[in-house]
Design a protein around this nucleic acid. Structure first.
Lengths: 147, 147
DNA sequence: CTAAAACCTGACGTTGACGTCAGAGGCAAG
DNA sequence: CTTGCCTCTGACGTCAACGTCAGGTTTTAG
């Protein structure tokens, strides 16, 4: 398929796809006239790129991690980077959860101005109960292997 | 205290504090010579600003929400904005969790290359079990009141 | 064939939260 | 008084992921 179709199917702009190629995140065949041609798999690949961007990874890191995301082959050195990114994301999630709870607390307080905080636990919309978010499963050991 | 001490105690740069003032996020008294003077409460306020920045809110939104964050007084219109931001943060958390699980899956697979996915459930580091993250407590109703 | 739509390669513009530099004044110590 | 650190106000620089425009070629629809 050509770039316009890929853009439509992946939900990104044509400019973004050319940018990804410039950053070595995406490759393409070329037609005799020079137009980019993509395989079906490119759609999923772009979605993966988007997902990693959404997780706050810059292009540089995505380039580093991309080979093992596709092949599943992970060298010890890459394992460290993967763990580092996972931990960073965990920390970021924790930040977001704290901010969210702060906002949520304000919202529920404003919605039920006459109830006490004890009553709130009985409400159908508990502020923070049951969240139980596991910040990490890998903080016990940083997995330094290849140094 | 003066700007240098506040910066140190809040863990931000002096430049950042001046930027916050420029964005109407922070106010200060002035000494006769024109130097900024802050109260003790400024430390916590800067930490709050940092927390909201970390949650992805731009200065403009923080300015809007700041009064009710401090006073606890929430108008119906502000309630909508608060809910909107909370929902946005929830969505962002969901994105992050998906990306994290993807990385985490790769990591555990690479760490236990000889175990099956069933074995992984028995490992001390389960990939996704027990996470149980509540995306939102407010999606049932968007709380349009003053809208 | 012709017009429109899609594509190409540059290359400059945008946005947000600052970093950094320049030049000048303020403040406690010796 | 001078040394040295802190502070002030501009104002330009940065970085990332694109948006957008210019000027030209290719593909598609009629």
């Amino acid at each position: 398929m050509r770039i316009g179709e890929l853009a439509a199917r992946a939900g990104v702009s044509v400019r973004a796809l050319r940018y990804y190629e410039e950053q070595d995140l995406l490759t393409s065949e070329r037609s005799p006239s020079g137009q980019r041609l993509y395989s079906e798999g490119a759609v999923e690949r772009v979605l993966l790129i988007q997902q990693l961007y959404a997780a706050g990874l810059p292009s540089r890191k995505i380039v580093e991690l991309m080979p093992c995301m596709v092949s599943g082959e992970v060298t010890p050195e890459l394992l460290d980077r993967l763990s580092a990114e996972r931990d960073r994301i965990d920390a970021q999630i924790a930040d977001l959860v704290r901010a969210r709870d702060r906002l949520h607390g304000l919202i529920t307080t404003a919605e039920n101005p006459n109830t006490t905080s004890l009553d709130a636990l009985q409400s159908p919309d508990p502020p923070s109960a049951g969240r139980d978010f596991r910040v990490s499963g890998g903080l016990q050991e940083t997995r330094r292997r290849g140094g």
